[in-house]
Computed example of a mutant assay.
Amino acid sequence: MAGGLVSTADDYLAFATALLAGGTYHGERVLSRPSVTLMTTDQLTPAQKAVSGFWPEYFDTMGWGFGMSVRTRRTHLGPSVGSYGWPGFYGTAWYNDPAEHMTTIFIMQRAHAGDQRLPMWHDFWTAVYQAIDD
């Protein structure tokens, strides 16, 4: 059995935008502020982080909120500590970086492409963060 998400780029952006805005979208509350905080805060204990279903040391820089990964340590040019989102198995990825007030969405369909250790992701994150001009 497997899971997945079917959506449009516009709906993905609406979801990410609502989370980044603390649970509001176009001025309307769609999620409570405490719900957003719980969703986007690392919920794992150190004992849970010692066991990874992904790859060794995955949880050295990532935690897990309710339904998404949460960046706990910055290791290179890329999402800031506190950023949250998810890189899907087929390469569709989204992250919110509250420190930069930024949403990034990358959409493709290619098996195993969501692995953030792939060189394409290093290039993607480098381009995204180098584009910040302040």
Rank of each mutant, 00 (worst) to 15 (best):
Y129P: 02
Y25C: 07
P56H: 05
Q43D: 03
T103R: 10
V128H: 06
N96E: 08
P87L: 08
G53N: 08
H76E: 06
D133W: 09
N96Y: 11
I132S: 10
T92L: 00
D10T: 05
F15G: 04
Q109N: 15
V51L: 10
T17G: 08
G27K: 13
G78N: 00
S7A: 10
S69D: 05
P34V: 12
A113C: 03
F54W: 14
D123K: 13
Y90L: 15
H112D: 15
D97C: 06
W64K: 10
P46D: 05
A93W: 03
G114T: 00
I105A: 09
H76S: 13
M108R: 05
W94L: 11
F15S: 02
A131Q: 09
A2H: 13
G22N: 07
P119K: 04
S7I: 01
D10S: 14
T92C: 02
V6R: 11
Y84H: 13
I107F: 13
F106L: 10
D97A: 03
L20P: 06
A14M: 07
L118N: 10
G22L: 11
L13E: 08
V81N: 08
Y12T: 05
L5R: 03
A9C: 05
T61Y: 12
I132G: 09
D42A: 05
Q43A: 13
S7V: 00
K49E: 01
H101F: 08
V70E: 04
D60G: 05
T37K: 15
E57I: 03
G91F: 06
A93K: 01
H122E: 12
A99C: 05
R74S: 04
F15L: 10
V81M: 04
H122T: 07
R73E: 04
Y129A: 07
T72V: 12
Y84I: 05
W94T: 00
G22E: 09
M68G: 14
W64R: 13
G22S: 09
R73I: 00
S35P: 10
M62I: 11
A50K: 10
T8V: 07
T126I: 02
H76V: 07
G3Y: 15
A16L: 07
T41M: 04
M39N: 09
V51Q: 12
A50L: 07
A111S: 12
G82F: 01
G4F: 02
R74L: 01
M102N: 03
L19P: 06
L20A: 09
H76M: 08
T103E: 09
H101E: 15
R73G: 02
R73Q: 09
I107N: 05
Y129F: 06
T104M: 06
T45N: 01
I107R: 11
R110D: 06
T17M: 07
M120W: 01
W94M: 12
R73M: 05
E100G: 06
Y12P: 00
L5H: 02
H112F: 15
Y90E: 10
E57W: 04
I107E: 04
G82H: 02
A111V: 12
S7N: 02
V81Q: 08
N96Q: 15
L5V: 14
